[in-house]
Design a protein around this nucleic acid. Sequence first.
DNA 1: CTATTCCCGAGTGAATCACTAGGTATTAGT
DNA 2: ACTAATACCTAGTGATTCACTCGGGAATAG
Lengths: 160, 160
Amino acid sequence: MKLSTKGRYAVTAMMDLAINDRNGPVTLAEISSCQGISLSYLEQLFAKLRKVGLVEGVRGPGGGYRLGKPVDKVTIAEIILAVDESIDSTQCQGTEDCHAGDRCMTHQLWEDLSFRLYEFLNGITLSDFIKRPEVKRVSVDQGSTSNHINKMFQPVTGSH
Amino acid sequence: MKLSTKGRYAVTAMMDLAINDRNGPVTLAEISSCQGISLSYLEQLFAKLRKVGLVEGVRGPGGGYRLGKPVDKVTIAEIILAVDESIDSTQCQGTEDCHAGDRCMTHQLWEDLSFRLYEFLNGITLSDFIKRPEVKRVSVDQGSTSNHINKMFQPVTGSH
DNA sequence: CTATTCCCGAGTGAATCACTAGGTATTAGT
DNA sequence: ACTAATACCTAGTGATTCACTCGGGAATAG
């Protein structure tokens, strides 16, 4: 689960597609000029997105890209995994007898954390963003219909 | 909020410190041989961690590194931010009149997501890991004392 | 004094990032 | 049939970052 600028480009581009879904395909030229990313670089990113079925291209004039799945099925984790390939957890992983014996359970702990992070990002879909189109920074409308998201805005109470 | 192998090194090293907290300082040589990371590279990482007060060094024989704060005050987000400096959200950010007008709210949406991710990682502390030392993959003990963590293992129900 | 540790800076090959350049394939409009 | 618009594909490139080596210091326990 890596996360870098490349992943950001992919996610924001996918958001763009999700927002303008009903108006037909979105061209890369639009996204490029709008987001200030190179066209050819976008093409490379979309090649990866297309390979895993997250988007589908429409050729010819009036063409562009459409989402390959319904907005509520596309998760942030998928998008990031498609372009920012995962971190290599090599390093004596599996064979945990690396040293003093009782140390070095950190691999396990990291995988725990990594899994949690994945679950978190896999619980957020594109629809969670386009649902509140102009509503900038929603302010905790209780009893929400969009489940599990607003939890993130809540407590953390104990720690800071 | 970037996340790469570098951040993983820092997090696992900090976990190591947290686990062996009571046995005096931990040397970089130990972490190095245990985790298969170069000693000098570790030194560079720990220089950054020291700069923000996450660790403190003890010189001389028997020295090493100690946590700079109580384990329950050190969050994953802090560690990652200390070594993996944040993603540049440049690109027409602020001036959102980049194109057709009603498009391009994606910056805002990205910042939303980025903030959520930060909150998530800032809600996990080192103590959440060392609390269950040998307990591999805890299985949802309800009514937990360690609040907000086990929520992550729960629903996501709707999406997949 | 000496060995052990942290501390510091400079340099290096490899990989990745974001991009440029130059194509080909498909299709809507005329 | 022609043209323009679009997706699609491959190769290369400078800049940056990654993970590392090397060569030193500075502090301190024994």
